[in-house]
Design a protein around this nucleic acid. Sequence first.
DNA 1: ATCCGATTGGACCGTATAGTCCAGTTGTGT
DNA 2: ACACAACTGGACTATACGGTCCAATCGGAT
Lengths: 203, 203
Amino acid sequence: MPEEPKTERGRRTRERILAAAAGLIERQGVEATSLDQVLTEAQASKSQLYHYFADKQALVRAVIAWQTATVVDGTAEQLAGVDSWAGLDAWFDALVAHQRSLDCHVGCPIGSLAAELADTDEPARQDLARAFDSWAAQLRAVLDRLRDRGLIRPEADTATLAQFTLATIQGGLLLAKTTRDPQRLRAALTAAGGYLRSLASPP
Amino acid sequence: MPEEPKTERGRRTRERILAAAAGLIERQGVEATSLDQVLTEAQASKSQLYHYFADKQALVRAVIAWQTATVVDGTAEQLAGVDSWAGLDAWFDALVAHQRSLDCHVGCPIGSLAAELADTDEPARQDLARAFDSWAAQLRAVLDRLRDRGLIRPEADTATLAQFTLATIQGGLLLAKTTRDPQRLRAALTAAGGYLRSLASPP
DNA sequence: ATCCGATTGGACCGTATAGTCCAGTTGTGT
DNA sequence: ACACAACTGGACTATACGGTCCAATCGGAT
Protein backbone atom coordinates (compact mmCIF):
# COMPACT_ATOMS: atom_id res chain seq x y z
CA MET A 1 0.00 0.00 0.00
CA PRO A 2 2.59 2.67 0.79
CA GLU A 3 5.69 3.77 -1.14
CA GLU A 4 6.41 5.98 -4.13
CA PRO A 5 5.39 9.60 -3.82
CA LYS A 6 3.30 10.83 -6.74
CA THR A 7 4.02 14.52 -6.49
CA GLU A 8 7.04 16.73 -5.99
CA ARG A 9 5.82 17.73 -2.56
CA GLY A 10 5.49 14.10 -1.56
CA ARG A 11 8.91 13.30 -2.90
CA ARG A 12 10.46 16.01 -0.77
CA THR A 13 8.61 14.82 2.32
CA ARG A 14 9.79 11.27 1.82
CA GLU A 15 13.32 12.50 1.29
CA ARG A 16 13.22 14.61 4.46
CA ILE A 17 12.10 11.65 6.52
CA LEU A 18 14.73 9.41 4.99
CA ALA A 19 17.53 11.90 5.53
CA ALA A 20 16.55 12.45 9.16
CA ALA A 21 16.33 8.71 9.77
CA ALA A 22 19.69 8.11 8.11
CA GLY A 23 21.36 10.76 10.24
CA LEU A 24 19.88 9.63 13.53
CA ILE A 25 20.51 5.95 12.84
CA GLU A 26 24.06 6.71 11.84
CA ARG A 27 24.64 8.42 15.17
CA GLN A 28 22.58 6.23 17.51
CA GLY A 29 21.86 2.93 15.83
CA VAL A 30 18.56 1.48 14.72
CA GLU A 31 17.05 0.32 18.00
CA ALA A 32 18.02 3.50 19.81
CA THR A 33 16.32 5.69 17.22
CA SER A 34 12.57 6.19 17.66
CA LEU A 35 10.16 7.14 14.91
CA ASP A 36 9.05 10.16 16.91
CA GLN A 37 12.64 11.37 16.98
CA VAL A 38 12.85 10.94 13.23
CA LEU A 39 9.58 12.81 12.70
CA THR A 40 10.57 15.68 14.93
CA GLU A 41 13.87 16.12 13.10
CA ALA A 42 12.20 15.76 9.71
CA GLN A 43 9.38 18.14 10.66
CA ALA A 44 6.84 15.55 9.56
CA SER A 45 3.92 13.64 11.08
CA LYS A 46 3.18 9.99 11.71
CA SER A 47 0.81 9.70 8.80
CA GLN A 48 3.43 11.08 6.46
CA LEU A 49 5.91 8.46 7.51
CA TYR A 50 3.43 5.61 7.19
CA HIS A 51 2.27 7.01 3.89
CA TYR A 52 5.67 6.24 2.38
CA PHE A 53 7.01 3.40 4.49
CA ALA A 54 5.19 0.21 5.50
CA ASP A 55 6.81 0.08 8.93
CA LYS A 56 10.03 0.79 10.75
CA GLN A 57 11.81 -2.09 9.09
CA ALA A 58 10.97 -0.73 5.66
CA LEU A 59 12.34 2.64 6.71
CA VAL A 60 15.51 0.99 7.93
CA ARG A 61 15.95 -0.85 4.67
CA ALA A 62 15.51 2.40 2.80
CA VAL A 63 18.18 3.93 5.01
CA ILE A 64 20.48 1.02 4.19
CA ALA A 65 19.95 1.62 0.49
CA TRP A 66 20.62 5.34 0.93
CA GLN A 67 23.80 4.79 2.92
CA THR A 68 24.99 2.14 0.52
CA ALA A 69 24.55 4.49 -2.40
CA THR A 70 26.28 7.31 -0.53
CA VAL A 71 29.26 5.28 0.64
CA VAL A 72 29.80 3.13 -2.44
CA ASP A 73 29.22 5.92 -4.94
CA GLY A 74 31.36 8.27 -2.88
CA THR A 75 34.14 5.70 -2.80
CA ALA A 76 33.81 5.11 -6.53
CA GLU A 77 34.28 8.79 -7.17
CA GLN A 78 37.30 9.09 -4.92
CA LEU A 79 38.92 5.97 -6.30
CA ALA A 80 38.11 6.63 -9.95
CA GLY A 81 41.49 8.04 -10.95
CA VAL A 82 43.66 6.06 -8.56
CA ASP A 83 46.36 4.11 -10.38
CA SER A 84 49.41 4.47 -8.17
CA TRP A 85 50.52 3.82 -4.61
CA ALA A 86 50.44 7.54 -3.97
CA GLY A 87 46.83 7.65 -5.10
CA LEU A 88 45.85 4.82 -2.78
CA ASP A 89 47.70 6.45 0.10
CA ALA A 90 45.86 9.69 -0.58
CA TRP A 91 42.55 7.87 -0.28
CA PHE A 92 43.66 6.26 2.98
CA ASP A 93 44.71 9.68 4.23
CA ALA A 94 41.30 11.06 3.35
CA LEU A 95 39.60 8.29 5.33
CA VAL A 96 41.70 9.04 8.38
CA ALA A 97 41.21 12.79 8.02
CA HIS A 98 37.46 12.30 7.73
CA GLN A 99 37.34 10.26 10.92
CA ARG A 100 39.47 12.79 12.74
CA SER A 101 37.16 15.60 11.64
CA LEU A 102 34.23 13.66 13.12
CA ASP A 103 36.18 13.01 16.30
CA CYS A 104 35.91 9.33 15.43
CA HIS A 105 32.21 9.14 15.98
CA VAL A 106 30.06 7.18 13.53
CA GLY A 107 32.81 5.17 11.85
CA CYS A 108 31.31 3.50 8.79
CA PRO A 109 27.51 3.64 8.47
CA ILE A 110 27.43 0.32 6.62
CA GLY A 111 29.65 -1.36 9.15
CA SER A 112 27.59 -0.10 12.09
CA LEU A 113 24.35 -1.22 10.51
CA ALA A 114 25.86 -4.59 9.70
CA ALA A 115 27.06 -5.14 13.25
CA GLU A 116 23.65 -4.30 14.66
CA LEU A 117 21.35 -5.96 12.13
CA ALA A 118 23.20 -9.01 10.79
CA ASP A 119 21.76 -11.31 13.42
CA THR A 120 18.30 -9.80 13.89
CA ASP A 121 17.05 -8.71 10.47
CA GLU A 122 17.73 -11.18 7.69
CA PRO A 123 16.65 -9.06 4.69
CA ALA A 124 18.72 -6.19 6.03
CA ARG A 125 21.67 -8.54 6.42
CA GLN A 126 21.40 -9.50 2.76
CA ASP A 127 21.24 -5.87 1.69
CA LEU A 128 24.33 -5.13 3.73
CA ALA A 129 26.16 -8.17 2.39
CA ARG A 130 25.51 -6.86 -1.11
CA ALA A 131 26.73 -3.43 -0.06
CA PHE A 132 29.99 -4.90 1.16
CA ASP A 133 30.30 -6.90 -2.05
CA SER A 134 29.93 -3.91 -4.31
CA TRP A 135 32.32 -1.96 -2.14
CA ALA A 136 34.86 -4.77 -2.38
CA ALA A 137 34.32 -4.83 -6.14
CA GLN A 138 35.34 -1.17 -6.28
CA LEU A 139 38.49 -1.86 -4.35
CA ARG A 140 39.21 -4.77 -6.61
CA ALA A 141 38.92 -2.56 -9.66
CA VAL A 142 41.59 -0.29 -8.22
CA LEU A 143 43.85 -3.21 -7.42
CA ASP A 144 43.35 -4.55 -10.94
CA ARG A 145 44.46 -1.21 -12.29
CA LEU A 146 47.56 -1.28 -10.11
CA ARG A 147 48.27 -4.79 -11.30
CA ASP A 148 47.83 -3.82 -14.92
CA ARG A 149 50.37 -1.08 -14.37
CA GLY A 150 52.84 -3.63 -13.07
CA LEU A 151 52.68 -2.43 -9.45
CA ILE A 152 51.26 -5.73 -8.24
CA ARG A 153 52.43 -9.02 -9.60
CA PRO A 154 50.12 -10.58 -12.20
CA GLU A 155 49.20 -13.76 -10.39
CA ALA A 156 47.95 -11.95 -7.29
CA ASP A 157 44.30 -12.63 -6.40
CA THR A 158 42.89 -9.12 -6.39
CA ALA A 159 39.43 -10.25 -5.26
CA THR A 160 40.84 -11.73 -2.09
CA LEU A 161 43.11 -8.73 -1.59
CA ALA A 162 40.08 -6.46 -1.88
CA GLN A 163 38.31 -8.45 0.85
CA PHE A 164 41.37 -8.10 3.03
CA THR A 165 41.59 -4.37 2.44
CA LEU A 166 37.91 -3.87 3.20
CA ALA A 167 38.22 -5.94 6.37
CA THR A 168 41.15 -3.87 7.54
CA ILE A 169 39.28 -0.65 6.84
CA GLN A 170 36.23 -1.83 8.76
CA GLY A 171 38.25 -3.09 11.68
CA GLY A 172 40.33 0.07 11.77
CA LEU A 173 37.20 2.19 11.81
CA LEU A 174 35.74 0.14 14.64
CA LEU A 175 38.90 0.43 16.73
CA ALA A 176 39.15 4.14 16.04
CA LYS A 177 35.54 4.69 16.97
CA THR A 178 35.85 2.69 20.17
CA THR A 179 39.06 4.31 21.36
CA ARG A 180 38.32 7.71 19.78
CA ASP A 181 41.82 7.52 18.37
CA PRO A 182 42.23 7.94 14.60
CA GLN A 183 45.71 6.46 14.90
CA ARG A 184 44.19 2.99 15.13
CA LEU A 185 42.76 3.44 11.66
CA ARG A 186 46.00 4.99 10.50
CA ALA A 187 48.01 2.01 11.73
CA ALA A 188 45.68 -0.47 10.08
CA LEU A 189 45.68 1.31 6.73
CA THR A 190 49.42 1.86 6.67
CA ALA A 191 50.02 -1.82 7.24
CA ALA A 192 47.46 -2.81 4.62
CA GLY A 193 49.19 -0.53 2.14
CA GLY A 194 52.50 -2.06 3.10
CA TYR A 195 51.23 -5.52 2.39
CA LEU A 196 49.87 -4.57 -1.02
CA ARG A 197 53.22 -2.98 -1.88
CA SER A 198 55.03 -6.10 -0.77
CA LEU A 199 53.28 -7.92 -3.60
CA ALA A 200 55.22 -5.99 -6.19
CA SER A 201 57.87 -8.50 -7.21
CA PRO A 202 57.57 -12.26 -7.72
CA PRO A 203 58.80 -14.49 -4.87
CA MET B 1 22.71 -0.27 47.25
CA PRO B 2 22.94 -3.38 45.06
CA GLU B 3 25.97 -5.53 44.12
CA GLU B 4 28.03 -8.29 45.71
CA PRO B 5 26.14 -11.39 46.77
CA LYS B 6 26.80 -12.36 50.38
CA THR B 7 26.01 -16.05 50.14
CA GLU B 8 26.76 -18.91 47.80
CA ARG B 9 23.14 -19.04 46.68
CA GLY B 10 23.21 -15.36 45.83
CA ARG B 11 26.45 -15.75 43.96
CA ARG B 12 24.95 -18.43 41.78
CA THR B 13 21.85 -16.36 41.09
CA ARG B 14 23.93 -13.41 40.05
CA GLU B 15 26.02 -15.63 37.84
CA ARG B 16 22.93 -17.16 36.21
CA ILE B 17 21.55 -13.74 35.37
CA LEU B 18 24.89 -12.58 34.04
CA ALA B 19 25.37 -15.66 31.87
CA ALA B 20 21.87 -15.37 30.42
CA ALA B 21 22.36 -11.67 29.71
CA ALA B 22 25.73 -12.30 28.09
CA GLY B 23 24.31 -14.98 25.82
CA LEU B 24 21.26 -13.01 24.74
CA ILE B 25 23.21 -9.80 24.21
CA GLU B 26 25.81 -11.67 22.22
CA ARG B 27 23.09 -12.98 19.90
CA GLN B 28 20.75 -9.99 19.72
CA GLY B 29 22.57 -6.91 20.88
CA VAL B 30 21.93 -4.77 23.94
CA GLU B 31 18.88 -2.77 22.86
CA ALA B 32 17.16 -5.80 21.41
CA THR B 33 17.53 -7.75 24.65
CA SER B 34 14.90 -7.07 27.29
CA LEU B 35 15.32 -7.68 30.99
CA ASP B 36 12.26 -9.93 30.98
CA GLN B 37 13.95 -12.10 28.37
CA VAL B 38 17.07 -12.31 30.51
CA LEU B 39 15.04 -13.22 33.59
CA THR B 40 13.07 -15.91 31.79
CA GLU B 41 16.25 -17.51 30.50
CA ALA B 42 17.98 -17.21 33.86
CA GLN B 43 14.92 -18.50 35.73
CA ALA B 44 15.06 -15.50 37.99
CA SER B 45 12.77 -12.64 39.04
CA LYS B 46 12.92 -8.89 38.72
CA SER B 47 13.86 -8.36 42.33
CA GLN B 48 16.75 -10.75 41.99
CA LEU B 49 18.13 -8.80 39.08
CA TYR B 50 17.77 -5.46 40.80
CA HIS B 51 19.21 -6.94 43.96
CA TYR B 52 22.55 -7.41 42.21
CA PHE B 53 22.56 -4.77 39.48
CA ALA B 54 21.65 -1.11 39.80
CA ASP B 55 19.99 -0.91 36.39
CA LYS B 56 20.23 -2.24 32.87
CA GLN B 57 23.37 -0.25 32.17
CA ALA B 58 25.12 -1.81 35.15
CA LEU B 59 24.14 -5.24 33.89
CA VAL B 60 25.52 -4.38 30.47
CA ARG B 61 28.79 -3.22 31.95
CA ALA B 62 29.03 -6.47 33.89
CA VAL B 63 28.44 -8.34 30.64
CA ILE B 64 31.22 -6.35 29.02
CA ALA B 65 33.58 -7.29 31.83
CA TRP B 66 32.56 -10.94 31.54
CA GLN B 67 33.03 -11.04 27.79
CA THR B 68 36.32 -9.20 28.02
CA ALA B 69 37.62 -11.71 30.50
CA THR B 70 36.39 -14.62 28.38
CA VAL B 71 37.79 -13.36 25.10
CA VAL B 72 41.07 -11.91 26.33
CA ASP B 73 41.86 -14.73 28.71
CA GLY B 74 40.86 -17.28 26.09
CA THR B 75 43.13 -15.62 23.58
CA ALA B 76 45.95 -15.48 26.09
CA GLU B 77 45.69 -19.21 26.64
CA GLN B 78 45.63 -20.03 22.95
CA LEU B 79 48.50 -17.71 22.14
CA ALA B 80 50.63 -18.61 25.14
CA GLY B 81 52.94 -21.03 23.36
CA VAL B 82 52.93 -19.44 19.94
CA ASP B 83 56.45 -18.60 18.78
CA SER B 84 56.43 -19.51 15.10
CA TRP B 85 54.51 -18.71 11.92
CA ALA B 86 52.91 -22.14 12.07
CA GLY B 87 51.65 -21.38 15.56
CA LEU B 88 50.15 -18.10 14.46
CA ASP B 89 48.53 -19.77 11.47
CA ALA B 90 47.05 -22.41 13.74
CA TRP B 91 45.44 -19.71 15.84
CA PHE B 92 44.05 -18.05 12.73
CA ASP B 93 42.71 -21.41 11.61
CA ALA B 94 41.04 -21.89 14.96
CA LEU B 95 39.33 -18.51 14.64
CA VAL B 96 37.98 -19.40 11.22
CA ALA B 97 36.90 -22.86 12.34
CA HIS B 98 35.11 -21.38 15.32
CA GLN B 99 33.18 -18.98 13.13
CA ARG B 100 32.30 -21.73 10.71
CA SER B 101 31.00 -23.89 13.54
CA LEU B 102 28.75 -21.02 14.59
CA ASP B 103 27.60 -20.51 11.01
CA CYS B 104 29.17 -17.05 11.28
CA HIS B 105 26.65 -15.74 13.75
CA VAL B 106 27.85 -13.61 16.65
CA GLY B 107 31.28 -12.71 15.30
CA CYS B 108 33.23 -11.12 18.15
CA PRO B 109 31.27 -10.23 21.29
CA ILE B 110 33.57 -7.31 22.07
CA GLY B 111 33.37 -5.99 18.54
CA SER B 112 29.59 -6.20 18.44
CA LEU B 113 29.25 -4.44 21.77
CA ALA B 114 31.70 -1.78 20.65
CA ALA B 115 29.82 -1.10 17.44
CA GLU B 116 26.54 -0.72 19.29
CA LEU B 117 27.62 1.14 22.40
CA ALA B 118 30.58 3.32 21.42
CA ASP B 119 28.36 6.29 20.55
CA THR B 120 25.59 5.88 23.11
CA ASP B 121 27.19 4.73 26.37
CA GLU B 122 30.41 6.50 27.27
CA PRO B 123 31.48 4.38 30.24
CA ALA B 124 30.84 1.25 28.21
CA ARG B 125 32.92 2.70 25.39
CA GLN B 126 35.83 3.19 27.78
CA ASP B 127 35.53 -0.37 29.06
CA LEU B 128 35.55 -1.67 25.51
CA ALA B 129 38.48 0.52 24.54
CA ARG B 130 40.42 -1.01 27.40
CA ALA B 131 39.34 -4.48 26.29
CA PHE B 132 40.73 -3.83 22.82
CA ASP B 133 43.92 -2.47 24.32
CA SER B 134 44.60 -5.52 26.43
CA TRP B 135 43.75 -7.74 23.50
CA ALA B 136 46.19 -5.82 21.34
CA ALA B 137 48.77 -6.14 24.10
CA GLN B 138 48.44 -9.91 23.92
CA LEU B 139 48.98 -9.88 20.19
CA ARG B 140 51.94 -7.63 20.65
CA ALA B 141 53.49 -10.08 23.09
CA VAL B 142 53.28 -12.79 20.45
CA LEU B 143 54.80 -10.53 17.82
CA ASP B 144 57.58 -9.61 20.21
CA ARG B 145 58.31 -13.28 20.67
CA LEU B 146 58.46 -13.79 16.92
CA ARG B 147 60.74 -10.80 16.62
CA ASP B 148 63.02 -12.10 19.36
CA ARG B 149 63.27 -15.35 17.44
CA GLY B 150 64.41 -13.44 14.40
CA LEU B 151 61.23 -14.05 12.41
CA ILE B 152 60.39 -10.35 12.29
CA ARG B 153 63.04 -7.75 11.79
CA PRO B 154 64.14 -5.97 14.98
CA GLU B 155 63.14 -2.43 14.09
CA ALA B 156 59.51 -3.38 13.37
CA ASP B 157 56.93 -1.59 15.53
CA THR B 158 55.13 -4.51 17.10
CA ALA B 159 52.58 -2.32 18.89
CA THR B 160 51.38 -0.87 15.61
CA LEU B 161 51.45 -4.28 13.98
CA ALA B 162 49.30 -5.63 16.79
CA GLN B 163 46.75 -2.85 16.16
CA PHE B 164 46.74 -3.75 12.50
CA THR B 165 46.28 -7.44 13.20
CA LEU B 166 43.42 -6.77 15.61
CA ALA B 167 41.75 -4.46 13.12
CA THR B 168 41.96 -7.09 10.40
CA ILE B 169 40.51 -9.72 12.71
CA GLN B 170 37.62 -7.47 13.69
CA GLY B 171 36.90 -6.45 10.14
CA GLY B 172 37.14 -10.01 8.91
CA LEU B 173 34.70 -11.14 11.58
CA LEU B 174 32.28 -8.39 10.63
CA LEU B 175 32.41 -9.26 6.94
CA ALA B 176 32.03 -12.96 7.69
CA LYS B 177 29.08 -12.35 9.96
CA THR B 178 27.37 -10.08 7.44
CA THR B 179 27.86 -12.36 4.45
CA ARG B 180 27.69 -15.60 6.48
CA ASP B 181 30.84 -16.60 4.65
CA PRO B 182 33.84 -17.63 6.76
CA GLN B 183 36.04 -17.18 3.69
CA ARG B 184 35.96 -13.43 4.25
CA LEU B 185 37.66 -13.91 7.58
CA ARG B 186 39.99 -16.47 6.04
CA ALA B 187 41.05 -14.04 3.31
CA ALA B 188 41.68 -11.25 5.81
CA LEU B 189 43.73 -13.40 8.16
CA THR B 190 45.79 -14.98 5.40
CA ALA B 191 46.72 -11.58 4.07
CA ALA B 192 47.54 -10.28 7.54
CA GLY B 193 49.80 -13.27 8.08
CA GLY B 194 51.41 -12.63 4.73
CA TYR B 195 52.19 -9.08 5.70
CA LEU B 196 53.76 -10.06 8.99
CA ARG B 197 55.89 -12.64 7.17
CA SER B 198 56.99 -10.02 4.66
CA LEU B 199 58.65 -8.18 7.53
CA ALA B 200 61.22 -10.92 7.94
CA SER B 201 64.18 -9.40 6.15
CA PRO B 202 65.41 -5.80 6.17
CA PRO B 203 64.44 -3.67 3.13
C1' DA C 1 14.25 -22.44 68.72
C1' DT C 2 14.96 -17.84 67.50
C1' DC C 3 16.65 -14.04 65.12
C1' DC C 4 18.04 -11.25 61.36
C1' DG C 5 19.96 -10.10 57.24
C1' DA C 6 20.18 -12.01 52.59
C1' DT C 7 17.32 -13.36 49.16
C1' DT C 8 13.12 -14.08 46.41
C1' DG C 9 8.26 -13.74 43.98
C1' DG C 10 5.64 -11.12 41.46
C1' DA C 11 2.19 -7.52 41.34
C1' DC C 12 2.34 -2.95 40.05
C1' DC C 13 3.54 1.66 37.77
C1' DG C 14 4.79 5.28 34.46
C1' DT C 15 6.31 5.90 30.16
C1' DA C 16 7.89 5.41 25.49
C1' DT C 17 7.10 3.18 21.37
C1' DA C 18 5.29 1.26 16.97
C1' DG C 19 1.43 1.44 14.62
C1' DT C 20 -3.83 2.91 13.42
C1' DC C 21 -7.40 5.91 11.99
C1' DC C 22 -9.90 9.50 10.02
C1' DA C 23 -11.08 14.02 9.12
C1' DG C 24 -9.10 17.76 6.83
C1' DT C 25 -6.15 20.20 3.29
C1' DT C 26 -3.56 20.66 -0.93
C1' DG C 27 -2.68 20.36 -5.63
C1' DT C 28 -3.43 18.80 -10.29
C1' DG C 29 -5.79 17.43 -14.38
C1' DT C 30 -9.89 18.53 -17.01
C1' DA D 1 -14.40 25.69 -11.05
C1' DC D 2 -14.86 21.02 -10.05
C1' DA D 3 -13.51 16.44 -8.86
C1' DC D 4 -10.58 13.38 -7.04
C1' DA D 5 -6.44 11.56 -5.62
C1' DA D 6 -2.38 12.70 -3.05
C1' DC D 7 -1.03 14.26 1.04
C1' DT D 8 -1.13 15.87 5.99
C1' DG D 9 -2.16 16.64 11.23
C1' DG D 10 -2.51 14.64 15.20
C1' DA D 11 -5.34 12.18 18.46
C1' DC D 12 -5.60 7.56 19.81
C1' DT D 13 -4.44 2.53 21.02
C1' DA D 14 -2.09 -1.50 22.59
C1' DT D 15 1.81 -3.13 24.31
C1' DA D 16 6.42 -3.82 25.89
C1' DC D 17 9.74 -2.07 28.59
C1' DG D 18 12.64 -0.47 32.63
C1' DG D 19 12.10 0.14 37.13
C1' DT D 20 9.73 0.09 42.13
C1' DC D 21 7.83 -2.00 46.11
C1' DC D 22 6.80 -5.01 49.77
C1' DA D 23 5.56 -9.08 51.78
C1' DA D 24 7.24 -13.73 52.10
C1' DT D 25 10.98 -17.11 52.56
C1' DC D 26 15.47 -18.89 53.38
C1' DG D 27 19.51 -20.14 55.99
C1' DG D 28 23.35 -19.48 58.99
C1' DA D 29 24.74 -17.80 63.67
C1' DT D 30 23.65 -17.72 68.48
